[in-house]
């Protein structure tokens, strides 16, 4: 509107033709090109280093493409690289991470989605208070809670063991093998619980906000038809909210795969996740440093989140935008 009047006053002119190569455009695209180079550089350096042999790496040109492409560093990183006396390579860490990841993602999303559903559609007295505590808890540095959780895991492990062992005389009398000591601290199941706990704030927020946006009429209609808490959850909410489940999965897969702190604290060397093992391989002080193997190992560890990232596109952005409170 305003543009039109201005144009009319200054004489008959058509719309200003756009120049593709205006100086502004050159500056914008030039800057963006340089910026993209900066962001891509480390990935490029990692890839070329991992494809070189050690003699070539020692020549000292990190940007140079490999003269002789070799996949030996990748093989070595996967199956032979050493941490201390163990020389099984990263593969062990990879499978540990998978065994941590799968149950953690499923359990944390299951629990958080039900919590979010209860908060959105079945509010009870105090539910909002708990939710507020949960959200503010997301900002508490993990270091504050880490040690008491060690104690909680150890004690509950002992408690569960005591309960299980109470059945042992009976089981042995029946010819079965008795229960062994059950540990939460230092085991994968303990780490799964920790991931479930610390994934709770952001996931609950995500699901609560999503379920709140579902039209209330649907919920009421189902109530009139006699559906209860679980009926509505499984028959209406779950099928309607698959996109948000995908977002939650992306968030959890990248978050749990990339975790280092909990892996160090709550597992032991045999069950270290991939990130911890990677760090131990690269930063071990023994032996000659093999930078090409190190970079191959680093890329291998980064591969899972990168694949998720490039495959998921906009959903990843949606996930982290929702994950904004996680910090």
């Amino acid at each position: 509107m305003v543009d039109a009047t201005v144009n009319a006053l200054s004489g008959p002119r058509g719309p200003k033709p756009k120049k593709a190569l205006s100086s502004t455009n050159i500056i914008i695209y030039g800057t963006l090109f340089v910026v993209c180079m900066y962001y891509l550089l480390p990935l490029y350096v990692m890839i070329v280093t991992s494809l070189k042999g050690m003699p070539e790496v020692r020549l000292g040109n990190i940007f140079g493409p490999p003269v002789e492409v070799t996949f030996q560093p990748w093989v070595k990183a996967w199956s032979e690289a050493c941490t201390g006396i163990n020389c099984e390579g990263l593969s062990r860490g990879f499978w540990n991470s998978v065994w941590i990841l799968v149950p953690s993602v499923i359990i944390s999303i299951a629990i958080a989605s039900v919590s979010g559903y209860a908060l959105a559609n079945w509010r009870f007295k105090g539910s909002e208070v708990f939710f507020t505590i949960l959200i503010f808890g997301a900002f508490i540095p993990y270091q504050v809670m880490i040690y008491p959780i060690v104690i909680l895991l150890r004690e509950s492990g002992e408690g569960i063991t005591a309960v299980l062992k109470a059945f042992n005389p009976m089981l042995e009398a029946m010819g079965f093998e008795g229960f062994k000591t059950f540990r939460l601290m230092g085991s994968l199941s303990g780490l799964v619980i920790v991931h479930t706990i610390f994934g709770m704030p952001i996931l609950t927020l995500l699901f609560r906000n999503y379920f709140t946006s579902v039209p209330e009429e649907l919920f009421k209609a189902a109530r009139v038809d006699g559906a209860g808490f679980w009926g509505i959850y499984f028959r209406i909410m779950l099928p309607m909210s698959l996109p948000i489940f995908v977002v939650a999965m992306i968030l959890q897969i990248t978050g749990i795969w990339n975790d280092f702190l909990f892996g160090v604290i709550y597992t032991k060397p045999e069950t270290y996740p991939m990130t911890v093992q990677l760090n131990n391989i690269v930063n071990s002080v023994q032996g000659v440093k093999e930078y090409n193997v190190n970079m191959a190992a680093t890329l291998l560890t980064g591969l899972v989140p990168l694949v998720i990232y490039f495959a998921s596109g906009k959903l990843f952005v949606r996930g982290i935008a929702a994950g904004a409170v996680k910090g």
Binding site: V35, C36, Y39, L40, L41, P42, L43, V45, M46, T49, V57, R58, G60, I62, T254, W257, N258, D259, F260, T275, V276, L278, N279, V282, Y291, N294, M295, T298, T301, G302, P305, L306, I308, Y309, F310, G313, F316, V317, I320
Partner: peptide, 26 residues
């Protein structure tokens, strides 16, 4: 997509990549 991809990587991967780039000898 290019500017955001490092955010998908863990701090361990980030740290090790830059440790190599900033390696004083090589």
């Amino acid at each position: 997509t290019i500017i955001l991809y490092p955010f998908a990587l863990s701090f361990v991967v980030t740290g090790l990549a830059w440790q190599w780039i900033l390696n004083p000898e090589l």
